[in-house]
Structure formats: structure tokens, C-alpha cells
Design a binder for these strands. Sequence first.
DNA 1: GCTCAAATTGACCCCGGTGTCAATTTTTCG
DNA 2: CGAAAAATTGACACCGGGGTCAATTTGAGC
Lengths: 348, 348
Amino acid sequence: MDRAEKLSINDVARLAGVSKKTVSRVINNEPNVSPKMLKKVQSVIDEYNYTPSPQARALSLRRSFLLSIVHDNPNASYVTEAMYGALEICRPAGYELIMHPCDFSKPNAIDRIIRFASHLKIDGVILLPPVSESVELTSRLKEIGCNFVRLLSTKSEDEVHMIYHNDGAAVNRIVSHLVELGHREIALIRGPENSQAANQRFAAFRSALKNKGLELPKNRVALGGNTFQSGIECAEWLLMSKHRPTAIFASNDEMAIGAIVTAQKMGLKIPAELTVVGFDDSPQASRMWPALTTANLHVREMTELAAQKLIAQCSGDIDAAAQVRVEVEPTFVQRQTTDVPATSAENA
Amino acid sequence: MDRAEKLSINDVARLAGVSKKTVSRVINNEPNVSPKMLKKVQSVIDEYNYTPSPQARALSLRRSFLLSIVHDNPNASYVTEAMYGALEICRPAGYELIMHPCDFSKPNAIDRIIRFASHLKIDGVILLPPVSESVELTSRLKEIGCNFVRLLSTKSEDEVHMIYHNDGAAVNRIVSHLVELGHREIALIRGPENSQAANQRFAAFRSALKNKGLELPKNRVALGGNTFQSGIECAEWLLMSKHRPTAIFASNDEMAIGAIVTAQKMGLKIPAELTVVGFDDSPQASRMWPALTTANLHVREMTELAAQKLIAQCSGDIDAAAQVRVEVEPTFVQRQTTDVPATSAENA
DNA sequence: GCTCAAATTGACCCCGGTGTCAATTTTTCG
DNA sequence: CGAAAAATTGACACCGGGGTCAATTTGAGC
């Protein structure tokens, strides 16, 4: 059915014996086209399987039909989920998706993102954490008139679109679970200090413990970098201590898995001798033994929402300009790393 | 430095007091521009940070400056590696990358890919296995005049561009390793029968065993689907047998990890009681305990090559039309799942 | 059947680039 | 110095769409 030569609106117009403007009206479902014309044009379109050139439309309409996900990627699965979520929405809407990884720690990172967006006239950008936490970036994006939605870890007080998972609630749920299992000596492997998400999870964790009447001494908090390797190092440090914790909560799965590997190397049985909880529900969490208890953040759904919002906004939806502020409740996923009640854990 | 309003070639021409054609010459580094003009135009370009509109160029040049990776994704890490490899090349060359996942088992999958490529006038497509194995797809792509390079698991006799990892060599290396460790009862978890890659790994495995004077009875070959879950099921079947194997080779990491999880659930110690080898060197292979012995396929390098080739071809490089047929040697990566010499493994 | 308003259609220009080719300027050289 | 050749520059059309507005057709009302 496809011809090798892609034909243009002019070809279609000629074949149908009408002006190109009429063809344009038909493809765009504009009103005021007589049924006769419509049928004539539509049949040519169908026969030759004509689709209008995205580049030409982009040039004429000053929009690109391009959405982009901008991310600084320590966490591949988060990004992958986001990608599939966005694609789910983009495809049927006639939008394409461009993934834009970056190294956000570089000094000119924001410049590069801005140049990228304005160069391609990207219609909308979905910002993933930690890129989404930058106020400078969002204000620069506003400056150039680029739509964006932020995916965040926690509600922010800004006035700009955001979709966030309620980390606090998830952390509470996790702490309750650990306490119910009888744990009292719970350590934290937290994320980097320049990450809002990490700071907020840390705060939520500490206050959750406090509510349970538990302490969080300094030697029970290890500072990680959200990476597997840092999980290993933090766990070594935590588990070497004289009175080692009976449970570790890592503020992402990567680090939790690093901790588990460390524990296993040391010969500790999980969960019997050490209980571990992560945060993310990455694919690996369910593909290991024992499988990791964690929190699923519904990144995919969040990104679908973000893409919908952006596309609606581009299409000039009346109320699409309204501020977006959606909260998504993470789901607690219990697996084998928290399968066994705490033991007294008297160790050397 | 960036103005909110992106200016066009006409603006630059006006500001520099020259014709737009001259500006065009400068941006494209065309010869026959006097130094005086060049300086005048360049300074305006620099001052206003002008970049030509990709959409307009696309329309005029009939190319999109878009590359795409088309894949049917059972294996997220393979795809991710490919993505980063391609981006590495695309970015500096001024190309953008569009990821195009698809469900290749659907009847109209090829139509959709063709429509995608011709609609967006994609300049070049990188096909990942198993999509890359389809002769119909490659011939359709040729029909519409779309450049492509295939990433394959093994050399193919076709006349079309391919970059492949020499699976046979890697499988040999793995088998030698297992035999050196003293294993004689080696089982295979193979991939699906409609996958050339899987069939070839199977064949390579069997002939490697044969060379070592070893048998591969039917009850030592489990048919998996390249997924974690199928790895679990295959391992259950293999390990339930009366005389269970001392080593399992899975033809991808996903299934190998499924096998490991199964063994661990059954209480088998790895590698002491069961040795396991995978194939892919996925991120998880090195993020578990014991870490998985496997083969690294250098997907990233392969994809970089593919992207380079495609871009060269688009740019009208004289010898870029030449057929590409690159072999990449996988690297054997020994980790803890093959750390211990085979024991006699006398089991119930 | 006629008038006037409403609906339909199309001519023409623009979007922001590039290619062609003619016009202009600079060089070369007798 | 003058003519021809070479180098440089720009006018204009085109890529494939959409917007504007005038021209044409259709329909309503009498």
C-alpha cells in the first residue's frame, strides 16, 4: 500500500482536483467542507496512504510535535518507566518523544538543555528528578516559552506544574512495617545532600521513627550517592559498627541492593539476620532472592499524566493552562527481605 | 545570552546587512565566502546565539537529522546501552535520536515501523535484535529508501549492513571455562525458537560441548523465552531432574538470574552446588551476590559504530555506501557464579 | 425568479531554510 | 590598463504545510 515516493499535499490536491487548502482542511477536520469535497479528498488520501509532513507542519505552525524527557540518570529503571509512560500517550496523539539525558552536575548543563529545547522548538518537556528540582531551569524554560511538567518526590510550594509521589506517606508505611516486625535498631542509607528527594526522605524517616518513639543516632545514618557502589560502602560502615542495626532502610533500591550484597558477602542471612527495605520498586527488586521489599512510585502513571497535560496545553485546551498539582500515592510492596520478625540480633 | 525570541536566518541577514543566502553559506561552511563577510555574519551569529531551525532545514534538504533505534524490548539493558551509544554520536553531529519500541510479534508491526520511518523521514534506523533479523523489514526499508544498520547476534549472509557480536566465540569461551572447572553435566537454558540469536547460541553451545567430548541430552536443554520468569521455570525443570546438572548456561542474563533465584529458593549454594553462566553482562549481573559470570557484548560500541555509519551515509560520504560488516568480539567476564571448581555433585 | 446572507473554495503569502543561476566584484595576466 | 576568468554575492523559487481574505457557490426568504 505504501508507495516508495511520499507524496505531498500538492500531489493530493492535484489528484483530487482541488486546491491544497481544501486538502489541508480535510486533514485537519476543519468545518465548512462540503461532503462532496470531503469524500473526494479523503479517498485520495486513503488510496495513497498520505500523511502530512511533520517538518512542514512544524515550520508552519511553529510547533514541533515533539515532547522530551530530560533527566540526569542514576536510575535507569525510573527513566525507562517514564519513557514508556510518555510513549503510551505520545504515539496516539501524533507526538514523538526525544529522550534527553544530561549530566546535571556540569556547570553549563542548564544552558545546554535550554539550547536543546529552543533549537528543536520542543513543545513540552517532562523533567525527572533531580533535574526537576532546579528552580533556575524551570524559570529559564518559562523565559523561552517552553511548556514543562515536573515529576517530583514531594510536593513543592512553587507555582509550577508538578506531579509528585507522596514519599512521606510511603516512608511512614515502611517504618510502621519494620516496627511491627519488632525492629528497634533501624539504620538509614540516605541519598546525596544536594537532592531534595533524599533530604525529604531522610526527614520523613526520622520523624516516622520519632512518632514510634525511636531514636536515630548519627551512627545509624549513612550518606550514600544513590548508587549501588555507595550502597555497598554505606552498608559496610553500618554493619561494622559494634551494635549493628537489625534493619536498614535505603532511600532507593540501588543502594538497598548494594547493602544486601554487602550483607551476603559478610555471611549475614537476609531477612533473618538483617532486614532491608528499598525505595523505587526497580525491576531488579523483584528479580533477586530474597526479593526486595520496597515502594512502587508509579512513575509510569505519573509520566502519562505529564504527557497528557503537555499535549493538552499545546493543543490550546482552554483549561490546560490551569496549574497541575497531582499527588500520586506510592504503593508499599512487601517481599522477602522483610519476611521474618526481628530477632534480638545480639552480635559480636 | 539566549534571547527569548529565536531569530531566523532573515533576522541574522538583516542584522549583518547581507543576504540570507550568505548567512546560509556561513552556517554551512561553504567555500567562496570572503573573510570580511564571514566575520560580519559570524559575529552576529555568535552575539545572538543563532542556530538554524532543524525543521526548516529538514523541509528544504529532505532529511530530518533524525536517527531512530527500533527494538522489541525484552531486554531493557541492551536497549539502554544502545541508546547511550547512539546518543554519544548523534549529539555532536547535530542529530537527534528517537527511540521506537514496538511489539514485533503483532501482525502489522512492520507496517507501523515503515509508516513511522517514512512519515518522519527518519534519516537512519538502527535495528536491534530480534527486529534486526527480519528480512521483510529490511527489504521494506530499502524500498522506501531509508538507511539502516542491523545489530545482530551472529554474522548473516545477507548483503545488508550489519554489526554483530561473535556469539560463537563467546559461547566457546564459556564452555571451556566450565569444562576447566571440571563440569561435565552442563545444562542449557536456551532462548525462543523463533529467535536466530537463540538458535545460534544453542548450536554453538552444542558444538562446543561436542568438541570437548561431552553430550547434550534433551533433558539438559530447557526452552525459555528470554525472560526472568522463563528462567525460573526452566531452572525448576532442570533442577528437578533425578541427576541434576552441575552447571547451567543460560543464553541471556535475565534467564540466568531466574535460574539463580530458583536455585537459591531451593537452598542450593551458588557456585558450590550449582554453577551458572549468563550472556549479556546486564547491569544486574554485577549487582548481585554472587555476581554473575557472563559475556559482555559491547552493545554500546556496536551502536556507536552503527550511528557513525548512518550519519556518514546521510552526509553523502563517498565510501559510506560501502557495505558494513563489522564483527565485535564479546568479552568473557568471570565473576562469582563460577568461582569454585565443580564438585562431584552427587545428589538425591 | 431575485436578493442577500451564509457557506464553501481557492489564490497567495508566510514559515526558515537551501539550490540555481545571474549579477557583481575581484583577480589574473597579456 | 583593459579584458577575460574567477570568485563572490544575492534574487528568486522551492520544500510542504497553514492562515487570510477575497471570490464563488449555495441556500434562504419573499
